[in-house]
């Protein structure tokens, strides 16, 4: 007698249903936090005319990095404006920033916890593996159930997909701190918190920044996919191009995403390097 198929799919559906019915308050709360955050970033980016915003961001890039990056930022953003994709680009950037912000706010403390507790590490590591290897699309479905269509499920799916590197590299950065230094901190009578804030975190900073960089890149890629559930932005442009078989439009949207990716990557990378230099 063949063993019947496990009704795993139905179990999951039941769990999701149960969550939907019983945790509505929690999901509403999350929605009420995420939506205004996305709105806030969008407001910031659309406050001034696009050209001025591009110049301001270019200037920020100059402060964080070098001239070449700043010039690339400026001309890249101006190109996006020229392609009439500015509105979509601002919403994509807002989604990315929101998702990254949440990932860092949640991921860094989790990473610290993992670094300090072996039990926590044993629990979190497989969860992180699961989060990263599960095809990103799969998160979209429950996200829609919980948060309906729009920006919020897109951000939540991005957070789930993009948070692992921040947790992993925070953990790694703290664990990498030379054992001698930990011993010295202990020998002078540091409390756990003093050791964490005065020794471990400052020394882990550049590794943590590498994690944050990864998180931003991953959330950008997820935000594009999230256009499938109505998150809007440049992903929607690409999606439209695909469904209408308009190669040109798809390429324009794709190019804008690439520009944003490069700008975000270079700026966060040089922030990471800067913290390395001062350490």
């Amino acid at each position: 007698m063949p063993f019947p198929k496990l009704p795993l799919d139905r179990w999951i559906e039941q769990i999701v249903n149960w969550l939907m019915e019983n945790l509505t308050i929690l999901f509403d709360l999350i929605s009420n936090l995420v939506e205004p955050t996305v709105g806030f970033f969008e407001m910031l980016l659309t406050l001034a005319p696009p050209v001025i915003t591009a110049v301001v961001i270019g200037f920020l890039a100059l402060l964080a990095s070098r001239l070449s990056v700043a010039l690339f930022t400026l001309f890249g953003l101006l190109l996006i404006q020229n392609l009439q994709l500015w509105t979509q680009a601002t919403s994509t950037i807002s989604l990315v920033l929101t998702a990254s912000l949440i990932s860092v706010i949640v991921g860094v403390p989790l990473g610290i916890w993992v670094a300090r507790s072996k039990g926590m590490k044993n629990i979190i590591t497989p969860v992180l593996d699961f989060m990263q290897t599960m095809p990103a699309f799969v998160y979209l479905i429950p996200a829609v159930f919980f948060f309906e269509l729009g920006a919020v499920p897109g951000v939540i799916a991005s957070v789930i997909f993009a948070m692992p590197p921040t947790i992993r590299l925070t953990n790694l950065g703290i664990r990498q701190v030379d054992q001698d230094l930990i011993e010295a901190a202990d020998a002078f009578g540091s409390t756990s918190a003093q050791k964490l804030f005065k020794v471990q975190l400052p020394l882990a900073k550049s590794t943590m920044m590498a994690g944050v960089n990864q998180t931003i890149m991953l959330s950008l890629s997820m935000v594009v996919i999230a256009s499938m559930i109505g998150a809007g932005g440049l992903g929607a442009v690409v999606l439209e191009g695909i469904s209408r078989l308009e190669v040109g439009q798809g390429f324009e949207g794709g190019l804008a995403i690439v520009i944003i990716a490069i700008v975000l990557d270079r700026i966060t990378q040089s922030l990471g390097k800067k913290s390395e230099k001062t350490s």
Binding site: D180, L181, E183, A184, A187, F188, G189, L203
Partner: peptide, 15 residues
């Protein structure tokens, strides 16, 4: 540790 014992390490262990 804070008031009575100071420690010096083989590989300096400076921050």
């Amino acid at each position: 540790r804070r008031t009575k014992m100071g420690m010096v390490f083989q590989r300096f262990a400076l921050f």
